[in-house]
Design a protein around this nucleic acid. Structure first.
Lengths: 230, 230, 230, 230
DNA sequence: TATGAATGAGGCTTCATTCAT
DNA sequence: AATGAATGAAGCCTCATTCAT
């Protein structure tokens, strides 16, 4: 009987080791991607950084591309989780929480965010992994619905400007995306005070589209705004 | 004497032809880049689309990468020109003109803008063309100074929030960048009404950082806003 | 004592299980070879079709090639058995029995025959299994001697044309081989009536080299022949 | 004017050189295929035997497989030519000429014939070159029609046994095929007098299916035949 | 003993770049 | 000056075989 137990234990342990190695591959790939230019990262390098043989990589992933989508999916799922938490907060009254959560999640690791964007550009036409890419998009879309619901309510409550709800989160997304690009762009003079800058942008992101921009707005201003954007 | 003239004419003509061909290469490359996935574009394809031999390409560009930076530089210079015009307008009183010009220039051809961003990601670590990349960054930086100057004035005039001036244009840049990414992202449910969406975002871009946004707005400022954005 | 017995029983049982598994591997390999293209068959597939682990295969066969030769040897031994029976029949007076047995044995499973031919081509230069290949050839050669003996007698009896005896069985072999190739060739227009065709060819095989073939035929014999083959 | 001439001459010369190299690749591949086991032949080896770089091979052939089909097509076309000549002869009265031509063409280089057979087995399922394979089969099929026509006439004339015409050439093909296999089989004792053996087989091939089997047969021999084959 | 994860040699193919004509 | 054939480094992937558990 103890035999049986130890046998199933072993199997479980083996599986764990296997999954650990999978994680190791992902991490090795990630590390390389973040350090070097994307096209410098070869399966060989990933394997050797993960401390395993090249062939082993293919026990875990059918294709090099599958490693890449995997990174993307992992990232997207994390974003989703954060966003979900934010939406909950928002429903509890903290109107801007969802947007804020979204921004924070993406700006927490701008390097990673940027990487995922770049990977997406490259993998767009990859025949293998078409399925995973579809899944990626599904994850995002399912989140849109949550966001839309929440935003519709806030628009109804008069908190947000009355435009189609997705306008709000897409503008939000755009700014977050741009902020990330900005972070990693090498073209700007002022590389100091980045933290302040990001706060500034986040602020914009959180408030943009708010009716009355943050603080109570006098009624006539609100009217003008509404007229303007319609 | 007529000989001499015709000879120098010929030389001039030859030079023109040479430059024409160079332009043709750039255009062929551009066309391909915009149509296919970036890594599908080979020197061979570029040459054949340009209607010349592959070897000839290397008479104009030392490296494939040089073609790519050239595209980037051309694009950046165009942006610069537009921005310059905007700044002039701004100095004539139209406070938001610079930002608007910038947005318009970049959103006029979002595909091209996106391409340039992608190219930059790829060429970041390219040893050849390090020089041209430096030049690219210089172009951008030189523009920053103009923007900074202008913005400092507007901050002084109380039009804009009193943060370091580059905060304003970087936020602006970020949103524009994000808008472009958004345009080309395949992940969103609502692909209709893009034009309206872009207008919405541009609006945000043009007004964000305006002092009025964070604080109660005095009536006359609000009026200016209305005029400006209509 | 019962312990001892059961222990030796167990050993015997284990051996049987071991041999059964070996057979299962062979059969799995065979099934795969006949279904898919030869180079699609990997050790992995064989193992999984046999319902065992890949490593276990190597407990039975030192090399993948050893599985293949084994298939060849099994097949060749079967042919040998059939031929032996035919020779016995031939010695009992049925002159053509040996040839007929040979043809029947090989055309009974043309797919398998073809497979063995293909395998032989591939394994010709394999360093491992050189020994087994030698054995394969020995099996064939040993049979040749039987055939030669038998044919020598028939030649002596005037039934067969007086050429070196191996001429007869080699011609026979060649035709059988060709018939198999024919069966599986994809290049011919007429794929119907294959059964009749094979009968026709078998007929040739059985009669070729008969002395009667090279000499005048009386009219009534010719008629009979016509009836037979229609 | 001499310039023009020399220029077009040069182009022609270049093309010739290019085609020569193509031929060289084919020959190198052929030489290797005939010397070593098929799967030992790599593109690298072919290139280095042809005295060119590996990449150059791909200027002439899109795929390794294309080299192989090319060999097959070249061979098949040669067979076709020989057969065509034989058919012409046959139409001039030499009844067996077509079959004889066919045999001779294939047995002239049995090694090559065998190679082509083996290649066909391997390439059967290759997705690339599906087209060329189709062409190969078309070549063969078109020839079948010629053969059928000719044989129908001979059957009508009473020279050949009255079975569907393709029975005759398929039996013929089968024997030729088998003869080739025989030539290269390593399993037979008697490797001497191969030439005589082939003559013997060819004889069978040329006469098999003839009504009355070539020459008059004495009555008692005919009787024996009847007993034997019934 | 059976297992299957790990291995890495080696195959095919691409493409930027060179250079002889 | 223009050409494009030649080149070969480098990438991705397969699979027979090994070996620790």
């Amino acid at each position: 009987m103890s035999n049986k137990t130890s046998s199933s234990d072993r199997i479980r342990e083996k599986k764990k080791l296997f999954l650990d190695r999978e994680q190791k591959i992902i991490e090795a790939a990630l590390e390389l991607f973040l350090k070097e230019s994307i096209d410098c990262v070869t399966v060989s390098k990933i394997a050797s950084k993960a401390g395993i043989g090249k062939g082993t990589v293919y026990k875990h992933f059918l294709t090099k591309n599958e490693i890449l989508v995997r990174i993307m999916l992992d990232y997207e799922r994390n974003i989703t989780d954060c966003l979900a938490a934010g939406i909950i907060k928002a429903e509890k009254g903290d109107a801007g929480a969802a947007c804020q959560a979204y921004f924070q999640a993406r700006l927490a690791r701008p390097d990673l965010d940027r990487l995922v964007q770049q990977l997406e550009g490259r993998l767009a036409d990859a025949a293998d992994i078409a399925e995973q890419l579809e899944e990626l998009h599904n994850i995002r879309r399912s989140n849109e619905d949550s966001l839309s619901d929440m935003l519709t309510k806030q628009i109804g409550a008069g908190v947000l400007e009355d435009v189609p709800p997705h306008f709000h989160y897409l503008a939000c997304w755009a700014l977050a995306q741009g902020a990330v690009d900005l972070w990693y762009s090498k073209s700007w003079n002022y590389r100091h005070d980045t933290a302040d800058l990001m706060k500034f942008i986040t602020n914009i992101g959180v408030t943009m589209g708010n009716r009355g921009q943050y603080h109570p707005v006098s009624k006539d201003t609100a009217k003008k705004k509404k007229l303007k954007s319609s």
